[in-house]
Design a protein around this nucleic acid. Structure first.
Lengths: 229, 229
DNA sequence: CGGCAGTTTGATCCCGGTCAAAATATGTGG
DNA sequence: CCACATATTTTGACCGGGATCAAACTGCCG
């Protein structure tokens, strides 16, 4: 295992209050792991033996229903902790984490969680802020699903992805990991058919520009309008 | 303010690890507050000045959309903490808490949160378990809304309420706070009309027995079946 | 170049929302 | 204790968004 640089962690919220030696200590106990696109980092219900920091790539957090349908509850962008079941007093992962793109992660055994929380000032606070944001996002999802039509939900889903993992191009903002119509439908509780029809229509209107596994939002503002006043 | 008894808190999870003197100290800093049915304890977006323990009654956690629609994201039964925005690093309440029935609460200023967490062993851990359960419940809501039909969602919503706040009667298990068709529709993302129709049909089948603002589940098992294999 | 993974598009159907109105409880003041 | 106002529930008729079924099309990779 090659030695990781401290400047990697210093700017990230959970570690931003720490001194270099502390970061060094944290890094020295970390394992670096790579995952290919599509593989799962851990599965729902499995023993939560490790927690992770996402250095590069995007995580898709999914739940799988008894009859095999997938529901995407969240996307996690680079720079955030994930698999932090212990923070909520769980000893098993509440959902499956899938690599939406090739991933680079740091990984610690869950047994270290407690010492991180007690030894490193700000670690707990910052971590719970992250949890808080995710809870807020889930809450919004629930409100959306209860009150909005499919078109609005899809518009908002795209905007969320763009805000979180958008990469500027000349033509618009691109979602910088591979994403299919099916993926979008699993985020919004619809079917790939409906998503396809909608994207086609939006493409005709110049709102988006999408290729196979790629979506570029060209006119975010009009998408916001579609997403509901 | 009359003196509260320590045996009130001792059996509740967040305090179960504490000694009597510690509980005494906590109680002495608490304010006891009563709320009438229908009033709101705090509003979404308001400064989170206090956190609460629900001694008696049921809380309905709602979000209100820009166009005035209400969405119920959670019900909280007696014995649990609520309004614990500080635990997720928020300084404002993420949702509105409404008294589903007459309430009795204890209330502490948010400024005490930090000292509770650091001074009382097990307090943080147990609290985060509660948060974890609520997150899990929200996750389930999302999965349900994405994959299930209205009938299944309503069946599950009733079962959840019955499990959480059920009171046994000769005829079945009764949801022990006033609840209207409208309330159920706000929990499931439907309309009161659909809920009414369904409840009428279920009543004919002997599955439930409902009066104005009252729902009694007579045959939970068949309801589980309806809720999805 | 064959084959799979992803996308598009059409045709059809039905669940559940919307509109409308009446029936039934509950509460309140005189 | 009754009469009226208000809140909740019920039921019917209708309709439309989006799921479902079906099939063709289009990259893309080995």
């Amino acid at each position: 295992m090659h030695r990781l640089d401290e400047s990697l962690l210093a700017p990230l919220p959970p570690f931003s209050f720490l001194e270099r030696p502390q970061i060094r200590a944290i890094l020295d106990r970390a394992t670096s792991r790579r995952f290919d696109e599509g593989v799962s980092v851990f599965e729902e219900g499995a023993a939560a033996n490790s927690f992770y920091l996402l250095l590069d790539g995007t995580i898709r957090v999914v739940k799988i229903t008894p009859d095999g349908e997938q529901v995407t509850s969240l996307h996690i962008p680079a720079g955030q902790l994930f698999g932090i079941a212990p923070s909520l007093g769980r000893d098993t992962y509440p959902a499956t984490a899938i690599a939406a793109s090739e991933l680079l992660t740091l990984c610690w055994p869950t047994s270290l969680w407690h010492s991180f929380v007690t030894d490193y000032p700000g670690f707990a606070t910052e971590t719970y802020k992250t949890v808080g944001n995710r809870v807020a996002e889930m809450n919004n999802r629930i409100v959306e699903m209860s009150t909005q039509h499919v078109e609005q939900r899809i518009a908002r889903a795209l905007l969320r992805l763009v805000k979180q993992s958008g990469k500027k191009t000349e033509i618009g903002i691109e979602i910088d990991f591979p994403i299919t119509r099916q993926d979008v439908s699993e985020m919004t509780g619809t079917t790939l058919h409906t998503v396809s029809r909608l994207l086609s229509a939006w493409e005709k209107d110049g709102l988006v520009n999408s290729k196979r596994k790629k979506i570029i939002v060209c006119d975010p503002h009009r998408l916001v309008v579609l997403g509901g006043a």
